[in-house]
Design a protein around this nucleic acid. Sequence first.
RNA 1: GGGGAGAUGCCAGAGCGGCCAAUUGGGGCGGACUGUAAAUCCGUUGCGUAAGCUUCGAAGGUUCGAAUCCUUCUCUCCCCA
Length: 429
Amino acid sequence: MKDFIASLTWRGMIHDMVPGIVQHLAKGMTTGYVGFDPSAPSLHLGNLVTIMLLKHFQEAGHQPIALVGGATGMIGDPSGRSQERTFLTEEVLRYNEASIAKQLEKFLDFSTGPNKALLLNNFDWFKDFSFLGFLREVGKHIPIGYMMAKDSVKQRIETGISYTEFAYQLLQGYDFYYLYLHKNVTLQMGGSDQWGNLTTGVELIRKKSQYQAFALTAPLLTRSDGTKFGKTASGKNIWLDPAQTSPYEMYQFLLNVGDHEAEKLIKIFACCKQEEVEAMILAHQTKPEIRLLQQTLAKMVTTMVHSEEACNQAIVCSTILFGHTASADALYALSEDGLLNVCATIPKVHITKTALSEVDSIVSLLSVATNNMIMPSKSEARRIIASAGIKVNKILLRDPYQKPDFTLLHDRYLLVQKGKKNYYLIVVA
RNA sequence: GGGGAGAUGCCAGAGCGGCCAAUUGGGGCGGACUGUAAAUCCGUUGCGUAAGCUUCGAAGGUUCGAAUCCUUCUCUCCCCA
């Protein structure tokens, strides 16, 4: 049994915790859980932090439970929301639950030992719980004053909160109580925005069973500019689902993380020992231009979320697209399979051969002829070419009105580069 | 209920009859530098190869000409009861 709290401490993963937790965990194997909201069909990079809580928990010898909030998802957590949520249909929810559950399975060890991970869905114990039963068994034990004092509720009193969302914390509180009774769970973990919900559970267990349960939150990751971690500059989430965010995009996102942030992240996501991580950080500080941390981080996370193959492909793709040696010749020398591999995860635009031959200028090709996927308008395309921002097949374009009579790669591809980092593959069929 | 103020491009915010496709700042995008970084600097930021076209909450009107004046409507904010 390793010291879980000590591990989280050096990793910077503790925001708040119920006192006495260290002694409690020292007594022996403990069961703890984290809940995941099925409001989207995929988890994202931000969720990965609380997944890591469970992972480190299991590695310390304890038993982790990943709980999918099939029931709570039907209600909507008011935490951090300024407005009432709109309900998802039950069909969508069931679908989201299933895909999230599948994603969670990847990260924990469900197979072996006394501390093997469990995956549960709170819909299972809520679906037959009557409203009257709930009021008598749960509602009775938590005073309104207590519920109103929560930040998540307080912030919404002015703008409006429905009874339904107000009651949310009771549902999550009951989860904890239920798991305490049936799975011997004594610890709930989550992001720092969940503190109010976690303590309601602790309170309910104290009231109903006279038992001191524990709660622990990890800080919500923010970037240096204050925005939430796990989103691209344009506000797009980095999803764990490869269909929504390609492994290449995820790899690139992590590779581009700032130095300070990389230090924080490596501590959270690295499963290796403290000394190894500290050595890496030191090495990075001596020679930051190597970007050891970013590369390690990108590699570790992409491999963990996707697979080693997917990660290797993302690396190959990155070197060809960004490597300093990547010239036009290298691109033309690439085999078709190689090219498709490199381009596996960049956006593709299709155009017919005849349509291509009818396109009068490169400006049209990049805008209207390709459904404005590359450029929103001809003006924009013209401007960007004028400022040397477009390369086709790695060759810089100068004249916006030149005919697009390029030598196609393997007779059917054009690799368009917009700026330094945006690539598109035009497929001619 | 009474009285004020306002609605301008992604955002903030000038403009108050022609010189306004609309000052400036932020953001975005592109370039240089670099570590595919940060900071900095440069360019650009309605559509259109151009002539020109459509924009300043909505609809009408006055005028040779309106973001700017008039009428109505919609919405937002503030103050007093």
